[in-house]
Design a protein around this nucleic acid. Structure first.
Lengths: 196, 196
DNA sequence: ATGGCCATGCGACATTTTGTCGCAGCTGTG
DNA sequence: CACAGCTGCGACAAAATGTCGCATGGCCAT
């Protein structure tokens, strides 16, 4: 299997910059198609991109060459991308990490940020948003306090996520605490959160 | 107007501890009823509580005596409670701050945590959850046998009641806001306030 | 290694709860 | 009065949930 680097796809007009000065970016997501698309987009934006699809590989690569930037998916096959955030930060506190997830919730967002993620974005997301997230300094303006009420479905999702994270993602325990059947909780978790 | 301190309501059995050793807690929320209830609950849990309803007063009090703990509402009348988080942290980085919000969103959650909030919780919350939030260091499952978080049914009920009240008990409007069928809302309201 | 214990993912099927329509009554307003 | 909006409720299909059961896999003490 060939090296998964996309530098060779760089259009000429981007070559004005010396490759050795390109910031390094590590992408970790189990969705391979998504990885490919994102890698291409980020390469075009001047990053030297590497891809991995699981935590193990990510750590191997990161230990070999600590990336300056990282994009981590929250829901990897089995484990949580959160542990990766922690470890990447441990390797180099200066690493800028954007956490992505199709199952966004405030509970996981809080965890991610506390562990050192630079930002937390919900899929679908485009490369420009990720770029903005990397640059984002905390106090930055655009935080709309508007806040329209969540739908009950969304409220429930957020609540479940909170109890779940408070219980180490143990579904059985969470189901018992919430007085709901494990099967039902599974089904709810399988669905993506409705937007509003 | 008397000082808004609730130490005088402390039951005797709590006096075993010297008042001067009680941790100080500053509550900032524009909902005065909510403040009162929360203050009482936290006092009972051993805090020396102070209340303010706006940023200005909060800063004045904080500068006079930096609190060790703070509970900040996200939506204060005009300004955002976020700026307060920042300022409290500037006064004393050790301050533990829990941010509360009526309408949770990942965006504000991310901001709050990046600015230094210890945790971010959506209303309705009970005092025990706030206590847990203060103690919660990132990541680990301390699992202090949380009491009984409300059941999802109960949470939903509380939430619906709140939105309903905010809309003059107009069922149609509330249903639309909540993205739920009017018929369904009716049926939910017809049922009893869910036992836990 | 072996059995016990528990968490998990998921199929299948009976029950319940929602989503939808529709209609009739009530109320304020131009 | 006509119009428009809110409300309560019946009826029936569609979707979600409660329940069982089973197989897999991790952990641990025997």
């Amino acid at each position: 299997m060939p090296e998964l680097r996309y530098n060779n796809t760089l259009p000429a007009y981007d070559m004005i910059e010396d490759i050795s000065e390109q910031p390094t970016l590590l992408i970790i997501d189990d969705d391979k198609i998504f990885c490919g698309v994102l890698a291409k987009a980020m390469t075009k934006r001047g990053f030297s991109v590497e891809i991995t699809h699981n935590i193990e590989d990510a750590l191997t690569k990161a230990e070999a060459a600590t990336p300056e930037y990282a994009i981590v998916d929250l829901k990897l096959d089995s484990e949580s991308g959160l542990v990766l955030v922690e470890k990447l930060k441990a390797l180099d506190p200066g690493t800028r990490i954007v956490m992505l997830t199709g199952y966004a919730s405030v509970a996981t967002a809080v965890e991610a940020i506390k562990l050192g993620a630079t930002h937390y974005l919900a899929k679908p997301v485009d490369a420009d948003e990720i770029m903005a997230a990397f640059d984002r300094i905390s106090g930055e303006a655009d935080t709309p306090i508007s806040a329209s009420p969540l739908s009950v479905g969304r409220l429930e999702w957020e609540y479940i996520q909170r109890i779940l994270t408070e219980n180490d993602n143990n579904i059985s325990v969470t189901a018992r605490i919430l007085n709901m059947h494990r099967r039902t909780l599974q089904r709810k978790l399988a669905k993506k959160p409705h937007r509003n």
